[in-house]
Simulated assay, not measured.
Amino acid sequence: MESPDARRTSRGRHETPEERADRRWVELLQEVRVIQIGVQILFGFLLTVVFTPRFATLGATDRTIYVVTVLLGAATTGALIGTVTFHRLVAGHRLKPETVTWASRLALTGIVLLLLTVTSALLLILRIALDSRAVPWLVAGVVAWFMVCWFALPAWVLHRYSSGDQG
């Protein structure tokens, strides 16, 4: 097994910009496939909530949280599907590296929107389920955990092991 120091001094892959863009595009598609399934399931469930008998009993604050959650879910879906439509509309114009860059930005936007969607959904569910002053603290704890898993840990690894190359 190669040590982190050996990886840091490695020259990396020997690929043309087009080969690199192709590889990064395939990686991005795989990432979007993984996240999109969960987003579609979450969004589907959110869309059905308004048709349940319990929805009519929600107060104004909870209804507002619900509407914000649905809008965030729709925005998340749009950003993640946008990665594919971006490629489809730009394909064949010899812009693969640029396409990968912009589609990656859309995917990251989708991840941030997913964080907001899950936060909002969790807030609504816990407000209804617990009716407790601890709800904001519980939500904050989960959001902090997501921030560590989704952003802080990758940033730390990038800082710790990066040779300055972008892969």
Rank of each mutant, 00 (worst) to 15 (best):
A155R: 12
L123N: 08
A144H: 10
S104R: 14
L115E: 07
L158M: 06
S163N: 15
A134M: 10
T117Q: 13
L108C: 07
V157H: 11
V157Q: 15
W150M: 11
D131H: 09
L153N: 08
L113E: 00
V118C: 05
Y161P: 00
T119W: 13
H159M: 10
L126V: 08
S120H: 00
S120Q: 01
L122W: 09
V112Q: 01
W150R: 09
L113Q: 01
L122M: 15
Y161G: 01
W156R: 14
S163M: 07
L116Q: 04
W145C: 10
T117H: 03
L138F: 03
V135C: 10
W145V: 08
Y161Q: 05
A134Q: 04
A152V: 15
L123G: 01
V139N: 07
R133K: 11
A121Q: 11
L115V: 07
L153V: 13
I125Q: 15
P154R: 14
T101F: 14
S162P: 06
V148K: 03
P136H: 12
V142F: 08
M147Y: 03
P154S: 07
A134K: 06
I128E: 13
T101N: 10
L116P: 00
D131Y: 08
W156P: 01
V112F: 12
W102L: 12
A155M: 12
I128H: 05
F151N: 02
T119V: 03
V148E: 04
R105F: 09
L124Y: 06
F151Y: 13
I111T: 06
L124V: 07
V135A: 11
A129T: 09
T109F: 09
V143A: 15
R127M: 10
L123E: 08
L138V: 03
A152C: 10
S132Y: 11
H159Q: 09
W137A: 06
L108Q: 06
L126W: 15
W156A: 12
R127D: 14
L113W: 00
W137E: 00
L124H: 09
V139L: 07
L116E: 02
L123Q: 14
V157F: 14
L126Y: 15
R105L: 05
T101D: 07
R105A: 05
L115W: 05
S104N: 12
R127Y: 09
P154K: 14
T109L: 15
W150A: 13
T119I: 03
S104F: 10
L115Y: 04
H159K: 15
V157S: 12
G110K: 04
A140T: 02
P154E: 05
L116T: 01
C149R: 13
T109K: 04
S163I: 05
A144K: 04
W102F: 12
C149E: 09
V112N: 03
L106A: 05
S163R: 15
S163T: 12
P154A: 12
T119C: 10
F151R: 02
A134P: 00
L123W: 15
P154L: 11
L130A: 14
R105D: 04
S120I: 00
P136G: 08
F146Y: 13
A129G: 04
R105T: 00
V112S: 06
Y161M: 05
A129H: 13
H159P: 00
H159N: 07
V135N: 02
P136C: 10
A155L: 13
W102Y: 15
V118H: 10
L124E: 14
M147Q: 08
A121V: 02
W156C: 07
A152I: 13
V135I: 06
V118T: 04
